[in-house]
Amino acid sequence: MIEELRRDRNLPDAALRKLIECADYDEGLFHHADEVRREYYGTDVYIRGLIELTNYCKNDCYYCGIRRSNAQAVRYRLNKEDILECCREGYALGFRTFVLQGGEDGFYTDKIVCDIVSAIRENYPDCAITLSLGEKNRESYLAFFEAGADRYLLRHETADEEHYQKLHPSAQKLSVRKQCLWDLKKIGYQVGSGFMVGSPYQTTENLIADLRFLQELMPAMIGIGPFIPHHQTPFATCAGGTLALSLRMVAILRLMFPYALIPATTALGTIHPQGRELGLKAGANVVMPNLSPVKVRKLYELYDNKICTGEESAECRGCLERRVASAGYRIVTARGDVACKSRREG
């Protein structure tokens, strides 16, 4: 069954259910996933410099620590100079991709975002610029692209409409999020999407729906991670996603999307001391150390107990390099673009 998934990049729903629900297949899954990632990317692991520019957000997602209704959150915004300083520090440390991530904050108008993106592009023409700023209209996405942004990350979180509404207020629509992803693709971005593993009310059918949606979208990047509750949200007492299921889904994704850039997320490292290393061994090939100023890192708290909030950028970079090497891989400073889909055929 695993060999069939590797060969065809697809399985019937019933077979996917077996792989998702049964631990008996894990050893084979991880073995084949690692072989495929080495076939496409060797032992290279790409680093993305994460800059969390604001924790203000107009949305009220039930699982998120920076949701609008969390009156206890201490809010902050980085200005253009703050962001460029993060880039300067990151560039000196070897980062060639910068990821500007934040809540959906109306303070950052199209003009402000374009000005920031243009400045980064002018100062670091050899770098990739990734945005992760939530749902926007097509005109905004186009403006950011024309200003110099290359990539856009927008996790769909769950592809099942009923499940989506259990995780969000009624004003937030899965159809809108999906349309944003299609708009981004049509404009020409390298698009990243993904989903939570083990979120409240999630079923195996929901996870299969996530895989089917990704087969339609064919994103360049796929980011998944375990759901971790935040104590100031409606889901504070819910159980979190497990390491086992998260790693299993990483491996399945690698076999279904061999060319994709798949991060070993901070959330994996939060639920297990070796979570990111295990993610790499299950098929991931990206890590995203934090370049944000240390003074604001604890404030960008999407979930509880997030790791690496007190480290300087150089410390975080050095620590990750050692961890990645201990897992049998190596950090590279290239932009890390998507592998050619036909590499297998030469």
Rank of each mutant, 00 (worst) to 15 (best):
H32V: 14
F30A: 05
H31A: 13
A71R: 13
E52H: 02
G65Q: 03
S69N: 10
L50W: 03
D34Q: 14
N55Y: 07
R38P: 02
G65N: 04
V36E: 06
K18T: 14
L29N: 03
R67T: 11
V45Q: 12
G42Y: 07
V36H: 02
D34I: 00
I47L: 14
C86K: 10
L78S: 03
Y46I: 14
C86R: 09
Q72T: 13
T54N: 02
C61S: 05
I20W: 10
L29K: 06
G28Q: 05
C64A: 08
G42W: 06
V36P: 02
D24K: 14
L53A: 07
C22L: 13
N55S: 05
C57S: 01
A33N: 06
L19F: 07
E39P: 04
H31Q: 13
Y46P: 05
C64T: 08
I20P: 05
G42Q: 08
V74T: 12
R75W: 05
H32R: 13
C57I: 08
E21F: 06
I20F: 10
T43N: 15
I47P: 01
V36N: 03
T54V: 06
L84W: 08
D24F: 12
A73T: 08
H32D: 11
Y41Q: 03
C61G: 02
E27T: 12
G49M: 01
N59S: 12
S69R: 00
Y25K: 09
A73M: 12
Y46Q: 06
H32E: 15
A73K: 12
D26W: 08
H32Q: 14
E27P: 01
K18Y: 07
A71H: 13
T54I: 06
I47M: 15
N79V: 12
V45W: 00
I51L: 01
D82N: 14
I83V: 10
D26I: 05
V74C: 07
E35R: 14
E85S: 14
I47Y: 08
H31S: 14
E81I: 12
L84E: 05
R88E: 15
V45D: 11
D26V: 07
K58Y: 10
I20C: 08
I20S: 07
C64W: 04
G42H: 07
I47N: 00
G28W: 06
Q72R: 13
C22P: 01
N55V: 03
K80R: 15
E21S: 15
Y76D: 00
C86M: 09
Y46L: 11
L53H: 05
D44M: 12
R38K: 15
H32C: 14
V45M: 11
D60G: 02
R67V: 10
I66S: 03
R48M: 04
Y63K: 13
Y76C: 03
L29W: 03
R77G: 08
C22G: 09
G65H: 04
D34S: 15
L84M: 11
Y63T: 00
R38L: 10
R77A: 07
G49R: 04
T54K: 03
Y56E: 09
L50C: 07
N55I: 00
L53R: 01
E85D: 15
D82Y: 00
Y40M: 09
Y46A: 09
Y40T: 04
E27I: 10
D82Q: 06
R68Q: 12
H32N: 09
R38N: 09
L50Q: 00
R75E: 06
I83G: 01
L53P: 02
Y62R: 13
E39W: 04
Y40W: 11
A33M: 06
